[in-house]
Design a protein around this nucleic acid. Structure first.
Lengths: 205, 205, 205, 205
DNA sequence: AATGAATGAGGATTCATTCAT
DNA sequence: TATGAATGAATCCTCATTCAT
């Protein structure tokens, strides 16, 4: 049946990985559009093209797949951050340019932001999940915070609030704007973040 | 038990108003702590001390009580705003003081903010609710926007973004921070908002 | 306020009678279009322009109003029958003409027939109601039966089945056709009944 | 307990078919004795020995199982008709004998007739169901109609009404009589139908 | 690994009925 | 007499999860 150009038969591991991947994608879409509580496992499985049983062969519960999404979410954000910040900028202008690049990635993908909101909401309700969430979120926040910290160091001025607070505020702004998005329509994604960032710099001078 | 000042027997209207009030309070608490989808009518009614039927004597559906909460939410915000802004400030310092007062009311009540988030989430999912939400939210935003507008007028400088955008951004910031609250613990509510506001002013000079 | 031509203020009795009447009418329409089980007391009361409480001031239960409808139903049928048969016909042709007149009244009002069906269905399910139903139905059937009986007497031939059976069969035919009515559309109401009646006569000769 | 001829373990399909069958049987009994509206899914499932969820694994809704009953109902009637009419009768006496056989099957099973009535009632109230019902009922009626048609052809006389009308009338008679059944007790099932049929023949001569 | 029938608890909603007003 | 808020049970249906295949 298989010819020389035939699509290679997937190995067992590859096939399972594919199933997992498809389930994760389906879950992400449904959590974003219906919320964590509004997405049923039946829907996730069907949407991915599998039965409910396949879901339970790959994840132990609904929260388990959310945890997987959390991991990927933060991994992606870390990757983004390291890409943007990776050139070890030392000059003020470079640092600013990097932050601008980062701000434009934020909000770029509204779905990603909505998922972030679902993760936070679920963390508020499930202690077990909250613990996991906290770990990964704290790390992410301090990474952003250290860039902000570096920025004000270069400026030779004290930051108007702790770097962690400012990092959290920028994330908060991004999430809050995502929440308004489908509702309103007046937002060029990361622009407002830069407006605020420039304000902070101006007020530090 | 009854004295000359005995608690007067409630009239029918009063009694019903009390029921309504208790149901609304219970709904608010549960929407905040479990989310709109996670709060069942059974829970709302029981929590208020009534049967499920009593709920349906007072509200036509789950969305109906959310709409009532929306109305109260915005009414309260409008009241807050009008109280704060009511002295018709003309001096720059007065306007700033007013905005500071307003910022400190924001985030004051984390529950109130979480309710706001639930309202926005539900608006994203229910078109009928979205229509109602949009009406009330647009009005609120432009009220805040006009104060911001006045501020930059007095400064004699252009605002770094449209007043509506800035108003939306401040609300977004407030919501995003509320989302982090139970998770983190590093937030003096409206302070960050003022930090950002002062930044805007500084960058306008 | 009231002038000489003013609509006379209803006495208390009249007013109550009016309430009753309106409730009965509403119940009849709803039982016919939704079935006995499908018509709620709330709907009946609202449809009549009253509250649920008004219903219970006039009837002790849902079955109670059905019983009232049963009484009126049979009363109306008896009236119809006596009008049609009242001229004490002695001639064969007269008797036939009377039966024809009766047949055309049958099925004339499809609603009336559907109500009859609801009554029978409820009688099958509620023993207390069945007892009441039986009384009134037996009387009605034997009235029709006696006309049929007279007819065959005049013909000087034995009827092909007992008069009661034949009467029941004609009623059954009428009910069964009503059941098909909204479904199909090929029915000139009482015509088929006469076709069958003439058949009986022909086969008796 | 298990012998060499032990009851074979059911395959998955067999097991599901059994579940379906039991649910269908339970539904039929309950629809007949309580009516469509009066039979709850809880009752159907419990009566069949399953949970409510099992019902929804096999049928998408209450109407869905009624549709299945409709299909089986008409299938059974078609089978009955084809059995009775299968010997390609050409002689008048043979055709009459066949019709007699058919009439005696009618009403034989009062439950079957009550189900027919429930189907018709539900068709009056649910447009979606009505469409399905119409299809199957029209076909059945014209099958019976064609036998009646053949009968009068052999007689060389015009039928006193269109074959379809007469077929519908005989079914109506059968249903109307079923409705009276538990109420009264004076009916030898299909006999009255034959009385009427012979009448039609007599009046055609 | 994947299926999907079956479970049992819980979802929103409607019902007949009661009772203080 | 008539109101309609409140009850509590019952309605149809969906859910996360289990388990034999």
């Amino acid at each position: 049946m298989s010819t020389t150009t035939a699509r290679r038969r997937l190995t067992r591991e590859e096939s399972q990985a594919q199933t997992r991947e498809r389930l994760i994608n389906a879950a992400q879409h449904l959590f974003v559009s219906n919320g964590y509580g509004g997405a049923s496992i039946r829907d996730i499985a069907n949407n991915a093209g599998y039965s409910q049983g396949a879901f339970y062969s790959n994840f132990s519960s609904k929260e388990d797949i959310l945890l997987e999404l959390l991991r990927r979410h933060m991994e992606a954000e870390a990757l983004q951050l390291s890409t943007v910040m990776g050139n070890n900028a030392q000059q003020l202008e470079q640092i600013l340019a990097e932050l601008e690049a980062w701000a434009s990635t934020l909000n770029q993908d509204a779905d990603w932001c909505m998922l972030s909101i679902e993760l936070q909401l679920h963390a508020k309700r499930s202690p077990t999940f909250a613990a996991e969430y906290q770990k990964v979120w704290g790390k992410h926040r301090s990474e952003i915070g250290s860039v902000i910290s570096l920025l004000f160091e270069k400026l030779g001025r004290p930051a108007p609030a702790s770097p962690d607070e400012l990092a959290a505020a920028f994330m908060a702004l991004s999430h809050g704007l995502a929440l308004q998005r489908t509702t309103d329509r007046l937002d060029p994604p990361g622009r407002l973040i830069m407006v605020f960032l420039r304000g902070l710099i101006a007020s530090a001078k």
